[in-house]
Design a protein around this nucleic acid. Sequence first.
RNA 1: GGCGCCGUGGCCAAGUGGUAAGGCGGAGGACUGCAAAUCCUCUAUCCCCGGUUCGAAUCCGGGCGGCGCCUCCA
Length: 477
Amino acid sequence: MPLKVYNTATRSLDLFVPLEEGRAKVYACGPTIYDHAHIGNFRAFLFYDLVHRYLEWKGYEVRFVMNLTDVDDKTIKGAVAAGSSVGEFTRQFGDLFLADCATLGIVPVDRYPRATDYIGPMIDFIGRLIESGHAYQADDGAVYYSIASFERYGKLKGIDLDSLKVGARVSHDEYEKEDARDFALWKVASEEDEVASAAWDSPWGRGRPGWHLECSVMSVTELGDTLDMHLGGEDLVFPHHENEIAQSEAATGKPFSRNWLHVKHLQLEGRKMSKSLGNFITVRELLEEGFGPASIRHQLLGAHYRSELNFTREGLNASKSAVQRLVDFDDRVRALPTGQAATATDLQTISETALDAFAAAMDDDFNTSDALAALFMFVSRANAAFDAADVVLESDRNAVREVLGSMDRVLGLLEVARASRAVDDDLALWVDLKIQERADARARRDFAAADGIRDELSARNIVLEDGAGGTRWKVVD
RNA sequence: GGCGCCGUGGCCAAGUGGUAAGGCGGAGGACUGCAAAUCCUCUAUCCCCGGUUCGAAUCCGGGCGGCGCCUCCA
């Protein structure tokens, strides 16, 4: 089945056709590492991960690059305040970011380029733009990109160039939307830049690269002139991505990205999350509040990436229950007794149908809500089939296992839930002992003692389940 | 003020012309010593009004309501 994606550039659902068959080159705008990433950032990063996982799931040979912005107004400001260089200052936040990614089960990408490692290529890139008449050094010493030199400027956002003031200059990174003007490619080094070791020599004097330039150069350097997909948050459409297109296409003469996908910003407890409102929250804080990473993942995947998503504690609790249902199902499948005398089931059909529905949902512009529905429908039907049969065929059990595992390679819910529930051997031994004690108590019908033990375990997030084959236990969030 | 999006059960959320997915929660039942897990049953006519159509949550018009971007942000 073909994958269709909503392309911001065409404003339509387009068939995903990479430049080279079977290969997918993806570039995603990563975080500016001057602070902790918050839950809103992770809606985008988790979407990147979903794209990454699904393209691989479909068999593409994926080359995925996500930058970590380490040179811009904010990192320099932070470094100066901290009395360190941008390199030192951003390293800690880069590490914290990658740690959060790992917690949430975000699969590592192929490269995490940082601007400071690409100063040489950036200088070359600017040189090419000046030679071809797309950039100029101004009286203030900075090098600017000439918007008027690129006729397609404004195409991505769909803005009317005539209505824009062209010719004025913007030297700061903190961009101004709806006010397209020539933007800086190379900035004259300020005193702060020097203090933060964020200044380099160039043919145009001491300075540093402009933010928009960084992404163009890193993507082209790492992935070639034309990308198959470029991902980012909705706020980046203009001017950041518009500028990337202008720079890259002017420099290479080739189409920059075949598809542009943008994630909508989320709401937090019904409100926009922003620093001015003081209501942004980090992954770490949520974990401290006791929410599991799989619950966070589930809630963020619960709504389609282009639609509104209101991230709430209440929703997180609902997600926790949903994830537990999956884990319970996975446990059941793993421990399921199989045999030849089994009753015939239609588990093969249930499995195939579920996987088809799942793939169809994902192919439809990554419709995760629909994909989750396919997963949970599968869980219900398989559970019912298990209940109806005394024993199932091993091949049927395996079909279910494979489909569950297959879906989770994309969704990563079980994977993350398992990782956060790992138990050490000592604990397992202790629990087994307690279960034996309880079994003895039950055998002599001393239910008060039995319930006491169950409560003791429950206090440690260990839940018991008495079944036909004895008592099983599990760790819950 | 400009541009755009949205309004589906108690909550979250799919569904863009053919008679309402899924999750959470709730009620009842089966199972259990009691639970837990699981299963079964029940729990919405899609903000309002008008229009188009054989037929609309889905299209058009008008209201009302919420939100986003235009300012830092993914």
